[in-house]
Nucleic acid binder design. Structure first.
Lengths: 242, 242
DNA sequence: CAAATTTATATGTTTGTACATATAAAATAT
DNA sequence: ATATTTTATATGTACAAACATATAAATTTG
């Protein structure tokens, strides 16, 4: 694998460095606890200053992917790959990582009129239709999650899009939309009739319910997502520092 | 209010600046959307370089407390105060913020022998007792959460401590332990007999279950916390950027 | 008056340089 | 052999100085 930085690219050097680091740390030796090259070396390898490199490393440290220790060097955090970045994996990627094969039970895409709270979040008129995507997914034997997603008209999604591709890849590569910020609300609820039917559980069974508000780089809303997870089928992990 | 930086203090200047900024942005005018002073000015006011100031601002931007815009300046994010720092409020502080008065139904502290998974997390011998704290809390009319906390012997907590004080304040001020990192796992479960009894709900009712692993600055484990929240009594919010 | 252009000003990026500090490892003293 | 001290090496902090870039506001042009 080649690591190189393009000084003529419009992408800031520290961002390029950040991306290279993300790749670098997926390599087996670093996953197994080997220190990554020290800052002075790395900076020289990449042809950037130590300060610029440090901006990149800092970001990964804050995300909890790297751990720095004076004199001991910098290494990949044990059990990385998970943590914060987890939030940003699409469902299928997430499951792949956990070694769970996924079956799609239902995939349904339509145009729908936004409910009141959605018109507020998206800041659109109630008559303006939005694309609604519903999905029922799970293990080969049984579905364990039902999703409903609504996309802002600005995103430019239509029924012609290939919704079998990973969602954030689709948004990024086909529509130039980069999901940057997500706010999520997680709670436990009892299954209502609709959800109980979808997930094939008794009425009132415990369900992990997740609302997800997704924004782009300009903090404009792009997706509103509701996820209903069968109890114990899903554990949400959060890591935070202060 | 005075803003000043002590160049002779062992606390890094960018950390001091960060703290001052946290104070600064609580002021009403900034909460109402007024720009904070521009970087060059601020740096001069504080007597530090722009680079150093920027380290401080960066952190708050990443936390989502500040929003920077070229030419437009830097201002407090609408609806700040919440976000990430939320995770770090103790339960009572959290509820106060939401305007909910809290009643303590039970508070029970004992020494207990650690279960197998706890000996692994704490890295202690099975015979070494740990302090266990149980709490049943909620609204004046009804309890809605049951906590069980276990503390590493290193923390130095004992039955003599005043557990009515906010927990992280107690750890910090009385035992010099600064909780820095927390890893949490959130899932939905059905109430078992014990929990159903505590929270006064039917067996199998939906419960939001949170495991919390808390570490100090050296990433040493200090607390293992289990929280059982009655459905709908609690919403967990997470904000993340990439 | 409205549209296009310029300009001023804020943040954004990058470098080079210097010294501080924690600590693993080596050297030394007990 | 063990305890102590030193040293080398990594990250940590901090500054000054440029130049890049986005954009609100002012200016010019049609």
């Amino acid at each position: 694998m080649r690591y190189s930085i393009d000084h003529k690219s419009p992408v800031p050097l520290h961002v390029q460095a950040e991306n290279l680091l993300r790749q670098l740390i997926t390599e087996e030796e670093y996953q197994n606890g080997k220190n990554i090259p020290n800052e002075v070396e790395l900076a020289e390898m990449l042809g950037i200053s130590r300060t610029t490199l440090r901006m990149a490393i800092n970001k990964l440290v804050i995300e909890g992917l790297l751990i720095r220790k004076k004199r001991a060097g910098t290494k990949v955090a044990p059990g990385a790959v998970s943590s914060k970045s987890n939030n940003w994996l699409s469902f299928s990627q997430e499951m792949k990582l956990r070694g769970i094969p996924i079956k799609n039970f239902e995939l349904h895409v339509t145009w729908a009129l936004p409910e009141p709270n959605l018109t507020i979040f998206f800041n659109i008129r109630p008559e303006e239709p939005v694309l609604k995507m519903e999905r029922l997914r799970g293990k080969p034997e049984e579905p364990f999650v039902y999703f409903a997603s609504y996309f802002h008209p600005r995103v430019g999604l239509s029924l012609d899009d290939d919704f079998k591709r990973p969602l954030y890849e689709l948004l990024e590569q086909e529509h130039g939309i980069i999901a940057t910020l997500s706010k999520e609300e997680i709670s436990a609820i009892g299954a209502d009739e609709f959800i109980a039917g979808k997930l094939q559980v008794p009425l009132g069974s415990p369900i992990l319910f997740r609302k997800r508000f997704v924004y782009d780089q300009q903090e404009r809303p792009i997706e509103y997502n509701l996820g209903y997870y069968k109890a114990d089928s899903f554990i949400y992990t959060v890591e935070s520092t202060r």
